[in-house]
Amino acid sequence: MEASSYEFLKQLLHTPSPSGYERPIQDVVRKYVASFADTVRTDAHGNVIACKNPEAKVRVMFAGHCDQIGMLVTHFHDSGFIYAQTIGGWDPQQLIGQRMVIWASGGPIPAVISRKPIHLLTDEERKQVVKLDDLWLDIGAKTKQEAQELVRIGDPVTLQLGLVEMRNGLANSPAMDNKTGLWTVIEALRRASLQSLQVGVYAVSTVAEEIGLRGAQTSAFGVDPHIGIAVDVTHATDCPTIDKRQQGDIALGNGPVIFRGPNMNPVVTERLIATAKEKLIPFQMSASGRAVPNDANALQLNRAGVATGLVSLPNRYMHSAVEMVALEDLDRAADLLAAFVVGLNGDEDFTP
Results as ranks from 00 to 15, higher is better:
residue 2 E to K: 07
residue 6 Y to M: 15
residue 10 K to M: 13
residue 11 Q to I: 02
residue 11 Q to R: 11
residue 11 Q to H: 04
residue 16 P to S: 08
residue 21 Y to Q: 05
residue 24 P to Y: 11
residue 24 P to F: 15
residue 29 V to C: 05
residue 31 K to R: 09
residue 34 A to G: 07
residue 36 F to S: 03
residue 42 T to W: 01
residue 42 T to L: 01
residue 44 A to G: 12
residue 45 H to K: 14
residue 48 V to F: 06
residue 50 A to K: 14
residue 54 P to W: 04
residue 56 A to Q: 06
residue 61 M to R: 07
residue 62 F to L: 13
residue 68 Q to S: 05
residue 72 L to N: 07
residue 74 T to F: 10
residue 79 S to R: 14
residue 79 S to E: 15
residue 90 W to F: 07
residue 92 P to R: 09
residue 96 I to Y: 04
residue 101 V to N: 01
residue 104 A to Y: 12
residue 106 G to A: 15
residue 108 P to N: 00
residue 110 P to M: 00
residue 111 A to H: 15
residue 118 I to N: 05
residue 120 L to Y: 09
residue 123 D to M: 04
residue 126 R to P: 01
residue 131 K to A: 12
residue 133 D to Y: 07
residue 136 W to C: 04
residue 150 L to I: 08
residue 152 R to V: 02
residue 161 L to D: 04
residue 166 M to V: 03
residue 171 A to V: 07
residue 172 N to S: 11
residue 176 M to T: 02
residue 179 K to V: 01
residue 188 A to E: 08
residue 188 A to P: 00
residue 194 L to A: 06
residue 200 G to W: 10
residue 206 T to D: 10
residue 207 V to L: 10
residue 213 L to R: 13
residue 214 R to C: 09
residue 217 Q to W: 05
residue 219 S to D: 09
residue 219 S to Y: 11
residue 223 V to D: 15
residue 226 H to R: 06
residue 229 I to K: 11
residue 234 T to R: 00
residue 246 Q to E: 14
residue 247 Q to K: 12
residue 253 G to D: 01
residue 259 F to N: 01
residue 261 G to F: 10
residue 263 N to G: 10
residue 265 N to Q: 11
residue 267 V to Y: 08
residue 268 V to T: 05
residue 269 T to L: 06
residue 270 E to H: 14
residue 271 R to K: 15
residue 279 K to I: 00
residue 279 K to F: 13
residue 280 L to A: 15
residue 285 M to A: 02
residue 286 S to P: 00
residue 290 R to H: 09
residue 300 Q to V: 09
residue 302 N to L: 00
residue 304 A to W: 12
residue 323 E to M: 12
residue 324 M to W: 02
residue 325 V to Q: 02
residue 325 V to K: 00
residue 328 E to H: 02
residue 332 R to C: 03
residue 335 D to H: 11
residue 338 A to R: 14
residue 338 A to E: 03
residue 342 V to C: 11
residue 347 D to Q: 15
residue 351 T to M: 05
